[in-house]
Computed example of a mutant assay.
Amino acid sequence: MLKLRFYGDPVLRKIAKEVLPGDLTEELLKEMSEIMYTQDGVGLAAPQVGISKRFFMYDIGEKLNIVVNPQIIEKSREIESGQEGCLSIPEIYEEVPRSVKIKVKYTDQNGNEYVRDLEGYEARVFQHEFDHLNGKLFIDYLSLIKRRTLKPQLDEIKEKGEEILKKKVPQETKSV
């Protein structure tokens, strides 16, 4: 049974390995999507459930997208800041700069290849989840001063991640 991993878990800082044919089962994807939806997230990367493989899923309200072995081919120079949160870092929401438009290439769980131009919120979510595959968290984009300010909360998440998630009050801001 999969379980959500929290800030401080070493798997969140590893560079994930390529997904090979047969790595993804329907059961695995179903279990991951249940975790994502139950926790009111819009995205979930494999490292967030302890699997160091290059895939993630997201749903911005249209349909569940399974993204396997993704690449970001191009990023716009235009950057926009927007609020982000993360299921692995509960109750922290901060402004993060991201490229407004990106061009991506990936396959789905069935090996179908996609090349897509994403923009706005979908581009933000994709970049956030893609970062997880490279061991990067949204708080890494924050200033040193801001990270120092968040240190007591981050230390608490390291110690009590699961407890914090259980008592989490639903917010309007969804975690990516």
Results as ranks from 00 to 15, higher is better:
Gln83Trp: 13
Leu137Phe: 13
Glu80Arg: 08
Phe130Met: 06
Tyr106Trp: 07
Ser99Val: 05
Leu87Trp: 00
Tyr106Met: 09
Glu84Asp: 14
Leu142Phe: 09
Leu142Gln: 11
Gly135Thr: 09
Asn112Tyr: 14
Glu122Trp: 00
Leu133Trp: 08
Ile102Lys: 00
Asp117Val: 13
Glu84Thr: 06
Gln153Trp: 09
Ser88Gln: 03
Gly82His: 02
Asp131Phe: 02
Glu156His: 15
Glu74Gly: 06
Gly111Ala: 07
Gln153Glu: 09
Val115Pro: 04
Ser143Ala: 04
Leu154Phe: 15
Asn110Ile: 04
Ile72Glu: 05
Lys160Asp: 14
Glu91Gln: 15
Tyr121Ile: 06
Leu144Trp: 12
Pro152Tyr: 10
Asn110Asp: 11
Leu165Cys: 08
Lys136Asp: 05
Lys166Ser: 15
Glu113Leu: 10
Thr107Asp: 02
Glu95Ile: 01
Phe126Ser: 00
Leu165Phe: 12
Asn112His: 14
Tyr93Phe: 15
Ile92Asn: 02
Ile145Val: 10
Pro90Asp: 01
Thr149Ser: 02
Lys166Met: 11
Gln153Asn: 13
Ile157Asn: 09
Gly85Ala: 09
Lys146Ser: 12
Glu162Asp: 15
Glu94Tyr: 05
Asp140His: 14
Lys166Pro: 08
Glu74Asn: 09
Arg98Asp: 01
Tyr106Leu: 07
Leu165Asp: 14
Val125Tyr: 03
Ala123Tyr: 07
Val104Ile: 06
Gly85His: 02
Ile92Tyr: 03
Ala123Met: 03
Phe130Pro: 00
Glu94Gly: 03
Tyr121Leu: 10
Lys158Leu: 02
Leu118Tyr: 08
Gln83Lys: 11
Glu84Ile: 10
Pro152His: 09
Ser143Arg: 07
Ala123Ser: 12
Glu78Phe: 08
Ile79Trp: 03
Glu119Pro: 09
Leu137Thr: 00
Pro90Met: 04
Gly82Met: 07
Leu137Met: 11
Tyr106Glu: 05
Ile157Val: 15
Lys105Gly: 07
Leu150Ser: 04
Glu113Ile: 14
Gln109Pro: 01
Phe130His: 02
Lys136Ser: 12
